[in-house]
Amino acid sequence: MRVEFDEPKCVAAGQCAMIAPAVFDQRDEDGVAIVLDATPPEEEHDAVREAAAVCPAAAIRLAGE
């Protein structure tokens, strides 16, 4: 699994950081998401899939799925 993040779309709703905190964080100045681990380990995959599914801006894509 590879996490592809379309930063200009991000509205900083923060759901990714809440659901998969090992993979996503938010930038201090404006809350925009940061990908901490673009190739997350297997045990994070379910959380990352959920984060991608609920992202309100559809800014998270998963390659190699």
């Binding site: 900083a12 923060g14 950081a17 964080d25 938010q26 201090d28 100045e29 404006d30 809350g31 925009v32």
Partner: peptide, 12 residues
């Protein structure tokens, strides 16, 4: 505009 008001509502 949203990026100017997001910070206080960030998850952390």
């Amino acid at each position: 505009l949203r990026r100017t008001v997001n910070a206080p509502f960030m998850v952390k």
